[in-house]
Design a protein around this nucleic acid. Structure first.
Lengths: 265, 265
DNA sequence: AGCTGTGAAGGACTTCACAGCC
DNA sequence: GGCTGTGAAGTCCTTCACAGCT
């Protein structure tokens, strides 16, 4: 059991070693990064941004844009253009110097890298308030992530359709997930139930989990977990409010009427 | 207008310069970091983890634990112990060598640093499926974040209580937020409405925003934004599924009924 | 002997800045 | 002249490893 990996910072240390390409001390020559390794080489942080670029690009395409410059795209995505170009360079060279990027080409390449050319069935476990909201998201954000199974422990909910899908009992999770080839499990249960649900999902062959329960899940190394933690988000914001309260935003706090040696008042 | 900051990576570059303590080329002496600067020095990544430690510690306290070692706490929080100790060292030295940390002390100190000793009123904008779920979270994850206002553009919803709070019309956002001293705004609207709502929240003096809409918000430098982006999370998971498909995972993909030389069927 | 606290080394990600192509 | 692609430099974060206290 390894703790969950790469969330809101890098990829986990120990865990990474397992999946990472073996240091590759190829006999008879220096390291020869195979073309396939390219994907591995994309920083996790860049992957998340590629998803953002993709959304922005889709918007541009709907507006009929044919090409974009790195600067335009960067502003729309809320990053600086150097970072954007670096991110795009991880997936290849699809721009034209002096011109920019062709929107449709970029969309295609990012979708390919993110694996969006294939559909990923999603199962939502825990049909409470949040589970309802998730199930109703309708095909889930962007196409490509059809919700194909819902589970709850409450027998009264079983059979009732939510967002068009009937709820199954959690006991059937393994069978149903296998049948419907679920590749992503979403945990929206109360905290105490989360680890148990996670274990069942893993047993059912689900390799990726999106966890909304405020619990640190323990999973085997080959399972990828991402978490969305409301409490953490709010507390980080709270920290910033607090910082602002003490800290001297524009100029350093005064000490005896002085600021860094400069007389202030 | 600066794009939103520090999300899933560091703090933004340009933005940070504004708040960061000026490089301090103090006349006549080396850098003298004031004690208060300690908070500034906590890496964003560490702040998010502190929130996780806090939750784990609360659990331990309920179980009656008096002290914990860095190793125990680290395992429970899903990080390694060196990182945990480093994170805790940012807020001070509250452990006892040879023994560990006193649970209650650590809880108190983390709460202090995260600014949880003060309450932060939360307003939720957009009372759709997600907004409902958020409003019903009940006082919001952990105490300290009372939901004190709900807004929607739909006049039919106005006055209806959700999770005990009656919905106000979005037109009244400025007045109500000021009256109820809202410090954190949560955006759960459809994408096209998000930027407009954000602008209104900012106009109402809200300095922290948690954004669930899949849109890159543009905000002034002094406003802190964090986003929760379902589509991005799923797409990052999708990327990992795709990676796994090429690369050699634990066991190589079958080729002609064989797996890495082992007969399969 | 056990465990914390932390400099220092290492690694990942970001930004710079400019060569290279259109 | 304009814009991409990318080594190199810089910054931030993580991990190591051990000194220092109990």
């Amino acid at each position: 059991m390894a703790a969950q990996r790469g969330q809101r910072n890098g990829v986990a240390p120990g865990a990474a070693e397992v999946t990472a390409p073996i240091p590759r001390v190829t006999a008879g020559g220096p390291e020869v990064p195979a073309a396939r390794d390219r994907a591995r080489a994309i920083p996790e942080a860049a992957v998340a941004r590629l998803a953002v670029y993709l959304r922005v690009l889709s918007g541009l395409q709907e507006q009929g844009a044919g090409t974009v410059s790195s600067e335009e795209l960067a502003v729309a995505a809320g990053v600086n253009s150097a970072k954007l170009r670096k991110d795009l360079s991880y997936i290849g060279s699809y721009g034209t110097r002096g011109v920019g990027y062709e929107v449709s080409v970029l969309i295609g390449e990012i979708e390919r890298i993110l694996g969006l050319t294939r559909k990923h069935s999603v199962a939502v476990v825990g049909i409470g308030n949040l589970g309802h909201a998730l199930a109703n998201y309708g095909g889930f954000p962007g196409r490509g992530f059809p919700v194909s199974a819902l589970f709850d422990i409450d027998a009264d909910l079983v059979g009732i359709p939510v967002g068009g899908i009937p709820v199954d009992h959690i006991e059937d999770i393994t069978r149903v997930c296998l049948e419907r080839e679920v590749s992503i499990g979403v945990i929206a249960t109360p905290p105490p139930a989360a680890q148990g649900v996670c274990d069942r999902l893993v047993a059912a062959g689900v390799q990726c989990i999106l966890n909304f329960a405020p619990v640190v899940l323990q999973v085997p190394d080959h399972v990828e977990v991402r978490k969305v933690d409301l409490a953490v988000e709010l507390q980080v914001l709270s920290f910033h409010v607090a910082r602002r309260a003490d800290g001297p935003p524009p100029v350093r706090r005064t000490v005896n009427g002085r600021v860094d040696g400069m007389v202030v008042s």
